[in-house]
């Protein structure tokens, strides 16, 4: 029986996990996810795709808000920039999709420098409102730059073909999203356990103390912005491809709230939390609809007429209830359950 964690070297301390079963189960999960598109019907598959794409975006926001503690209310701005960067390079100028994905990362990253720079002087709520302002400004910029973005008409996007492999079918596209999600997950986990990640967390916990210890606040805050925007931009490109049409209306402000809800529900500052939160938040409206439809057909009708409103109400409720009763999110709950399981019948 394991009686504690005894680490003898620094390498062991920062390893992704010290337990073989975790690797084993993760591998099984990946295999299951690869096999899933062949088993699921197209309705269930659409949820899987959305979970994977949203997961990438949530992991992106997690770097900024979860690790570094900078609240962003305007992440939908990076999402829409990424989607447009992909659409313009690939659909409009006919460049290969791989260039499109690079652009979808780099353009929001550059945009984030513009937002990040003034944000260095701002703290807390002032920063949140600046990012909010950014997301509105970027929408107007996109609508006004008609020659590049077709303005309000939007741009239609085809499923990509990379190195001769076509991702046209839903199955193949799921695999593409899965690939991006796994790479993003590993990237954020690795950032977290590196020097950079520790600097981020130090800034989040106490920025003055971090500065005293020699962390360059400006550089690291900007770095957090850039990384976060890069990842979020890629998620935006994937979402644009999934919708097969990129327009400003496709990326409503509610997505920013949804992203924050994901982080809060999952547990702020944890990659696992972002993943769990994504699954819960994406499936929540559907699960609620299903539960209510068991009771009456009238409820079902209400869901089809006011779907958008009910969805936002659910997000709001979930945010409030989690902050009130489980501020550490699903990850916190999971840790509690695991500890109880391991130590039972002892308390600790």
């Amino acid at each position: 029986m394991r009686s504690g964690d005894f680490k003898q070297s620094y390498g062991e301390l920062v390893a992704l996990t010290d337990s073989r079963p975790v690797w084993l189960w993760s591998a099984i999960l990946v295999v299951a996810l690869i096999a899933a598109p062949y088993m699921l019907n197209s309705y269930a598959l659409s949820f899987l795709i959305i979970i994977l794409i949203t997961g990438v975006g949530a992991l992106g926001l997690n770097i900024l808000t979860g690790y570094t503690g900078l609240i962003s209310l305007g992440h939908v701005g990076f999402l829409v920039t990424g989607a447009y960067a992909y659409a313009v390079t690939v659909s409009k100028y006919g460049m290969p999709p791989i260039v499109g994905f690079l652009a979808a990362g780099i353009v929001p990253a550059l945009a984030s420098l513009v937002v990040g720079a003034p944000s260095l002087r701002l703290k807390g709520l002032y920063l949140a409102i600046t990012t909010l302002a950014f997301s509105f400004i970027i929408n107007t910029v996109i609508l006004e730059a008609r020659t590049l973005t077709n303005g309000a008409r939007g741009i239609s996007v085809q499923r990509p073909e990379i190195f001769g492999v076509s991702f046209d079918s839903d199955t193949a596209f799921t695999h593409l999203c899965l690939g991006f999600a796994i790479v993003t997950l590993f990237a954020t986990l690795n950032i977290r356990r590196s020097r950079v990640g520790r600097a981020f967390v130090a800034i989040r916990d106490n920025d003055i103390a971090a500065r005293v210890m020699g962390i360059n606040l400006h550089a690291y805050k900007l770095f957090a912005f850039v990384t976060s925007a890069f990842i979020t931009g890629i998620a935006g490109a994937l979402y644009g491809i999934y919708l097969s049409f990129v327009s400003v209306e496709g990326f409503p402000f509610l997505l920013s709230i949804e992203a924050l809800a994901i982080l809060i529900v999952g547990g702020l500052g944890s990659a696992l939390g972002a993943v769990l939160g994504t699954i819960l938040i994406v499936l929540l409206p559907e699960a609620t609809r299903f539960t209510f439809s068991l009771f009456s057909a009238q409820m079902d009708a209400l869901f089809s007429t006011g779907a958008q409103e009910l969805k936002s109400m659910l997000y709001g409720l979930v945010i409030i209830l989690f902050l009130r009763f489980q501020p550490r999110g699903l990850v916190g709950a999971w840790h509690d359950i695991r500890r109880t399981w391991v130590n039972w019948p002892l308390r600790y």
Partner: peptide
């Protein structure tokens, strides 16, 4: 609770009130 949590609660509240109109 921390200010961040309470501010997020008001955001949640905003979303709920907004959709309740409909």
């Amino acid at each position: 609770e921390p200010v961040f949590a309470t501010v997020m609660v008001t955001i949640g509240l905003a979303v709920i009130l907004r959709s309740s109109i409909n």
